[in-house]
Simulated scan of single mutants.
Amino acid sequence: MAQSKRLRKLIYVLQDKASLIGATLSIRRHVSSVAVPVLRATTHSLSTPPSEARIAAVLSIGHGSYLLPRACINALMDRLHHTHSATVALKCLFTLHNVIIRGPFALRDQLSCYPSYGGHNFLNLSTFRDDSEMESLELSSWVRWYAGVLEQSLSVSRVLGYYLSSSSIQNFKNYKKGVEETRRTHLGLSNSDLLYKIEGLVGYVEQISRVPDSLYLQKNELVYEVVRLVGEDYRCVQYEIFSRIEELGNRMENFDVAELSELLGYLKRMNESKERLLLLFVNRKKNDEFWDLIDQAKIKAAIAKEEIQGKWLLVTKPRRDESTGSTQYKNPFLEPGQLIPVPHADTSRFLLTVPTVG
Rank of each mutant, 00 (worst) to 15 (best):
G325P: 05
Q309N: 10
E307Q: 08
Q328A: 06
N331K: 04
E306I: 06
K317I: 04
G310D: 07
N331P: 01
I299E: 13
I299N: 10
T316H: 04
K311W: 08
A304L: 11
P341A: 14
S326K: 10
S348C: 04
V315K: 07
L334N: 10
L339I: 11
A301F: 05
K300C: 11
F333T: 08
V342R: 06
L313Q: 10
A345M: 08
P336Y: 04
E307T: 04
A302R: 03
D346R: 02
T347F: 07
L339K: 11
D321K: 00
P336N: 12
S323Y: 01
K317E: 11
P343E: 13
P341Y: 05
L339G: 05
F333K: 06
L314V: 03
I303L: 11
K330Y: 14
K317V: 08
A304G: 14
Q338M: 12
R320Q: 09
A304F: 04
T327H: 04
I308K: 10
P332Q: 13
T316R: 02
Q338G: 07
I340H: 08
K298F: 08
A302E: 14
A345Y: 02
R320S: 06
R320V: 12
R320L: 15
L313P: 00
I340S: 14
R320N: 06
L334E: 12
P332S: 15
Q309H: 03
A301K: 02
N331W: 00
A301L: 10
D321Y: 02
A302V: 04
P336D: 15
V342A: 10
S323V: 08
Y329R: 01
I303Y: 00
W312A: 05
H344I: 06
L334R: 05
T347C: 08
Q328P: 00
K300N: 13
V342L: 11
P343K: 14
K305V: 02
K305D: 11
A302L: 12
L314C: 03
E307V: 07
E307C: 01
I299Q: 10
A302F: 02
S348K: 10
T316V: 02
P318W: 13
I340A: 15
G337H: 04
Q296D: 15
I299Y: 03
Q309S: 04
Q296M: 12
L314K: 09
G337D: 08
R320M: 10
I308P: 01
V315M: 08
K305I: 02
K298T: 14
W312G: 10
E307W: 00
Q296L: 14
L313W: 00
L334D: 11
I340P: 00
V342I: 13
Q309L: 13
R319W: 11
E322Y: 03
D346F: 03
N331R: 06
L339F: 11
I308Q: 07
Q309T: 03
P343F: 07
L339M: 11
A304V: 02
W312L: 12
Q328S: 08
K330W: 13
T327W: 13
E335L: 10
G310T: 05
